[in-house]
Amino acid sequence: MGTAGIAGAAGTAGSAQLVEIVLPGVVEPEGLRIRRREIPAPGPGQIVVRMEATGVSFAEQQMRRARYYDQPPFPFVPGYDLVGTVLTAGEGVAPELIGKRVASLVKVGGWATHVVLDAADAVEVPAGVGAAEAETLVVNGITAWQMLHRRARVREGGTILVHGANGGVGTVLVQLARAAGLRVIGTASARHHDALRELGATPVDYRAEDVPARVRELAPGGVDAVFDHLGGRSVVDSWRLLAPGGTLVAYGSATTRDDSGSKQLPVLKILGRVWLWNALPNGRRAYFFNVWAGRALNKDRFRARLGADLTQVFRALQRGEVSARIAARLPLTRAAEALRLAESGTVAGKVVLIPDSGDGATGASAQ
């Protein structure tokens, strides 16, 4: 699917403008729209970042179906994270930040050529790390790092189970866990097993095998942590696979992506189970991980923690402990094709969107 699959608004030829992809409602990927407008000026404490790479995460797949539990009302610009260069800065921002490559977690708004951010939400990308490589590790890396090191805290030599170990978060989680000296069991379809073995994980085929039974064979005493993005029945099975003192970290409800009805209910069910399990005197723990937790209560603490953790992920990349897995790089105006590819389940790594060369809306129909 090329750019002709997205409807666009005509812009002024030759003038620098902001180009963004709009999700207008519950639509197929081809229903995304291109919108052009003037590049805004940064306010006090803000910066304008010229996007170099943004990505397609599972959140966007849920959002286009109105299934992401706290997404904004339609229409809006998707894009959970981005990497780019600081173009301009507002009052109160250190001028030396201009020209720096930074990364930011934004939840929405990243699918645009220019993004206005609070300067405090930008994390500097180390020299020598490319924009697309860094992009693969923003939301995926932060999620994996914080779940592993701030929630599970499994001791060296322990065993963990990672569901969807071939996915964006799962792949990073496997690599970080191996670097921490942990044994990893990872679920994935058979075509991804060789890649998981190369990362040092023991694969389990969730399509052809009884996952709980197979995990019990591999870890008769239970596992020290389970990382579960599936939700539903899987969360119950994951809890039962824990060893004494083990930790369950649930962080999504992927199995309900195509369901109808309330988008909050699957998450509320997980939260209810977590509350109940933690009330039991059995020594095990359960969490529902939300990367945004704590921001509303203490924004400064949230930013400091996120910046420190993302910096650790980038250092792991530089040390070779984590690899940047890019499934494809597509121009921003081919966001429909990128979303289709990410949803296909046929690729390993992250689908990355990059700026178009020249007039990005060429070939798009007029709105």
Rank of each mutant, 00 (worst) to 15 (best):
R233S: 15
A250V: 11
T159I: 01
A119M: 06
V347K: 14
V83T: 12
L218F: 12
R301T: 01
V322N: 05
D224T: 00
V204R: 10
G360W: 08
G55F: 00
R197S: 02
G14P: 00
T143A: 05
V116G: 10
G90Y: 11
A10Y: 02
A134I: 01
Q146K: 11
L173I: 13
L248T: 05
T256Y: 15
A53W: 10
F76S: 08
G261Y: 10
H149W: 14
A53F: 06
R183E: 00
H193A: 03
G294W: 06
E96F: 06
E337T: 10
P355N: 04
D70R: 15
A348T: 02
V115Q: 03
L353E: 07
G109Y: 05
V56Q: 13
V48F: 05
G141F: 03
E20M: 12
P40T: 09
G221K: 10
R315Y: 01
A119D: 07
L271S: 03
V184W: 08
T187F: 08
A336D: 07
R65T: 00
V154R: 14
I47Q: 10
A7P: 00
T202R: 10
A338W: 13
K350M: 03
G90A: 02
L182G: 01
A342H: 07
A4M: 08
V235W: 09
